[in-house]
């Protein structure tokens, strides 16, 4: 009996420790929630919640720019996200199928190269890429931000899907082949539908990563009417007299889509990362 009560105690302290760690990690976020409702003068007070919540921080912040509301910036960003996700999901699956199931010459070499590009610093390619887009008059459009997603998405996604396809029994392919199916219809009818769970992971990470691809957006989008949410926030910060409450309120709204997606598909994501043991 001694043992079990000691076990209980340690379990209790274990929970306590985890709760403390979680609270420390999330504390800035809690503070953020409160701060988004504060007046500028209240901002520096260590209270979590303001005395009178300024809900107008949200409405005023929403239309801080005289020209456009955040609705406009959200529409821009979501439009860009839509095409990025479509491109990423479709092409990463196609490429992954090629690497995972088909034998072709130099497959090993190409795959090694693909893995190596994961480690390549983007700075080495960014200047010529910019020049390329500039030559075709595509700077200040969404094309440079969307197009790369149609080239297999991030190499990481291809790698993730290759691992996943390798886990699908080959008997399925073989059976379809005996029925006279080509590799293309095997992909379209058998493998692609089975990939659905990992494709959700791909879609969500594409969404979050493009949302946070501030560097790319800063580089390629120059006119305000094309601004994304991230660029709009930066414009907000650059103002002379920053209304912090409004700015933090808008910042909070700007992470909502990513956070919502994450919580909806949370279980999915963590498993997706764990099966490959790779970075998220």
């Amino acid at each position: 009996m001694m043992g079990s009560s000691r076990l209980k105690l340690s379990r209790f302290s274990y929970h306590l420790l985890l709760i403390v760690v979680s609270l420390i990690m999330l504390y800035p976020v809690f503070w953020w929630l409160g701060a988004s409702l504060k007046k500028n003068s209240e901002m520096r007070l260590p209270t979590l919640w303001p005395q009178t919540p300024m809900w107008e921080n949200f409405t005023k912040g929403w239309s801080f720019s005289a020209q456009y509301t955040f609705g406009h910036f959200f529409t821009n960003t979501l439009m860009m996200e839509f095409w990025s996700v479509i491109g990423s999901v479709l092409t990463s699956a196609i490429v992954a199928y090629g690497f995972a199931r088909l034998n072709f010459r130099f497959r090993g070499i190409w795959f090694s190269i693909l893995i190596m590009t994961m480690m390549l610093p983007g700075q080495v390619t960014i200047i010529p890429q910019y020049i390329l887009y500039h030559t075709f008059g595509l700077v200040n459009s969404y094309i440079p931000l969307i197009l790369p997603h149609f080239f297999g998405g991030a190499p990481f996604f291809v790698f993730l899907l290759v691992q996943f396809i390798r886990g699908i029994p080959r008997e399925l392919d073989e059976a379809a082949k005996i029925d006279g199916a080509s590799v293309y219809s095997i992909f379209a009818r058998i493998i692609f539908p089975l990939l659905k769970p990992s494709l959700v992971t791909v879609a969500i990470f594409t969404f979050i990563w493009s949302w946070d691809n501030f560097f790319g957006q800063l580089l390629y989008l120059s006119s305000i009417d094309k601004y994304t949410v991230g660029l709009a926030l930066r414009m907000f910060v650059d103002q002379f007299d920053i209304q912090w409450g409004q700015l933090l309120a808008m910042s909070l709204i700007s992470i909502l889509p990513s956070a919502l997606l994450f919580f909806l598909a949370q279980k999915h994501l963590v498993e997706g990362i764990q099966t490959t043991g790779l970075k998220g």
């Binding site: 088909l102 072709f104 190409w110 149609f150 080239f151 297999g152 293309y184």
Partner: peptide
Amino acid sequence: AGYIFISPWLIGFLLLTLWP
């Protein structure tokens, strides 16, 4: 078939990585 399937990545690699 293999090269058709990996072509999206391969084109992207040549155009947006190797050449740059």
